[in-house]
Simulated assay, not measured.
Amino acid sequence: MKESPVSARKEINPFLKSALEFGPILLFFVAYLRLKDNTFTIGGTDYDGFIVVTAAFIPLLVLTTGIMWMLTGKLARMQVATVILVVLFGGLSVWLNDDRFFKMKPTMIYLLFGGLLAVGVLRGQSYLKYVMEEMMPLDDAGWIKLTKRLMLFFFGLALANEIVWRTFTTETWVYFKTFGLTAALFGFFMFQARLFQDHSPEKDDA
């Protein structure tokens, strides 16, 4: 008997999952702090610490994402899109020795996610429900509300990233990317507690 896609999914230790998801980001941050003032000459070309750390971050993220896929049998579409954009924009930064491309990567990610959610909203659908229904049970009205809010939030993050990397130092952007964007995402979902309560399917069944 063929195993269903749902039953084929595997659960892994939550600490290991967190290490695979956030480990590369934290390692990037630590490595940047250690190497930010250094210059490396490779093949006759000088590369600053940011470019060197970016070059190391790309295969590390691909590796940890691959391990996640092997251990769980699945990857979220957001994870796949993130890896693709990291390889594309990070690769351009290393190849052209220009850190601007990698700094633009969060902007592209949030514009992509916000744009996809907007397409769904215009069609009267919640693409967010399709991705996160197992994690956050909501009724249909709740999914539409959450999708609209998250769509606007993603566009706001894209704008914030553009402002920070274009007007502040690279070090400030690294802090913003490592901690600011992550904290903003956690904060967003924490402030949706009322929505989760008002649109819980269990509430409708009561």
Rank of each mutant, 00 (worst) to 15 (best):
G114D: 02
G115F: 02
L117H: 04
V119W: 14
V119L: 12
G120S: 08
G120T: 02
G120W: 01
V121T: 09
L122K: 15
L122R: 15
L122M: 15
G124S: 13
Q125E: 15
S126L: 04
S126Q: 13
S126G: 09
Y127H: 10
L128A: 08
K129E: 14
K129N: 12
K129A: 10
K129V: 01
K129W: 04
Y130K: 14
M132C: 14
M132D: 10
M132E: 15
M132Q: 08
M132L: 15
E133H: 15
E134V: 08
E134R: 15
M136W: 12
M136S: 13
P137K: 09
P137H: 12
P137E: 04
D139F: 11
G142K: 00
G142I: 01
W143A: 04
K145S: 10
L146K: 01
L146S: 04
L146T: 05
L146R: 01
L146H: 10
T147C: 10
R149N: 12
R149P: 12
L150P: 01
L150K: 06
L150A: 07
M151D: 05
L152Y: 15
F154W: 06
F154D: 03
F155M: 07
G156M: 06
L157Q: 03
A158M: 01
A158E: 00
A158H: 02
L159E: 07
A160Y: 06
A160H: 11
A160F: 11
A160R: 13
N161W: 02
N161M: 03
E162A: 09
E162F: 09
E162W: 04
I163A: 07
V164I: 15
R166T: 13
R166K: 15
R166C: 05
T167H: 09
F168Q: 10
F168R: 12
F168V: 06
T169P: 03
T170F: 00
T170I: 06
E171G: 11
E171H: 13
W173L: 01
W173C: 00
V174F: 09
V174Q: 09
V174M: 06
V174T: 09
V174G: 07
V174C: 12
V174D: 09
Y175A: 00
Y175S: 02
F176T: 01
F176N: 00
